Simulated assay, not measured.
Amino acid sequence: MKNQIRGLIGPNGSGKSTTMNLISGSLKPSAGKIELEGQRIEGKEPHRIARLGLIRTFQLTRVFTSGTLLDAVALGVRAASGSPWSPARWIPAGDQAEVNHAALVALERMGLAHRANELAGSLPGGLRRILTIATALAAKPKIMLLDEPLAGLNATEKAEVANRIEKLRTDDVSILLVEHDMRSVMRLCDRITVLNFGQVIAEGTPAEIGRHPDVIKAYLGQKRVRDA
Rank of each mutant, 00 (worst) to 15 (best):
A138W: 04
E108S: 04
L150P: 10
I165Q: 09
L104V: 12
E148W: 02
L137D: 07
L177W: 07
D172L: 15
E157T: 12
A120M: 02
S174D: 08
V173H: 01
H180C: 12
R169M: 11
A106L: 05
T170Y: 13
R169T: 15
T156L: 09
S184Y: 08
R191D: 13
A106Y: 02
A134L: 12
C189E: 06
A102H: 01
T135G: 09
H180M: 12
A113P: 04
A138N: 05
M110G: 02
V99H: 01
L131P: 03
G126T: 15
V173I: 01
K158V: 11
I192R: 00
N100E: 13
D171N: 13
A113Y: 03
T135P: 06
K158W: 14
A155P: 05
A138L: 06
L104M: 14
H101I: 08
A120K: 00
P149A: 11
N100D: 11
A139N: 11
R169Q: 15
D190L: 00
L127C: 14
E118I: 01
P141W: 12
R169G: 14
R164K: 13
G126D: 11
G126K: 04
E157N: 12
A151G: 10
G125V: 01
A139E: 08
C189W: 00
L107E: 07
A159D: 07
L145H: 03
G152W: 10
L107P: 00
I192F: 02
D172F: 12
I133Y: 05
E179L: 00
E148A: 03
R128M: 07
A139S: 10
A134M: 13
R109M: 10
T132E: 13
K158C: 15
V178R: 01
A113S: 11
P141F: 03
D172P: 06
K142S: 14
E157R: 02
R128A: 08
A162S: 13
E118H: 04
I130C: 14
K140Q: 14
E160D: 15
H101D: 15
M144T: 10
L188R: 03
G111V: 01
A103E: 09
L146M: 08
D190F: 02
I165H: 04
L153R: 14
A151P: 09
E108K: 00
L168E: 14
P124V: 08
I143R: 01
T193S: 06
R164N: 12
V99C: 00
V178Y: 03
L150C: 09
R129G: 11
H101W: 06
E160M: 13
L137F: 13
R129P: 15
E148V: 00
V178A: 05
N100P: 08
L107A: 07
V194W: 00
T156V: 13
A113N: 05
A139R: 00
I130P: 03
V185L: 13
A136C: 09
G126M: 03
V178N: 01
L119A: 06
V105Q: 14
T132C: 14
G152F: 12
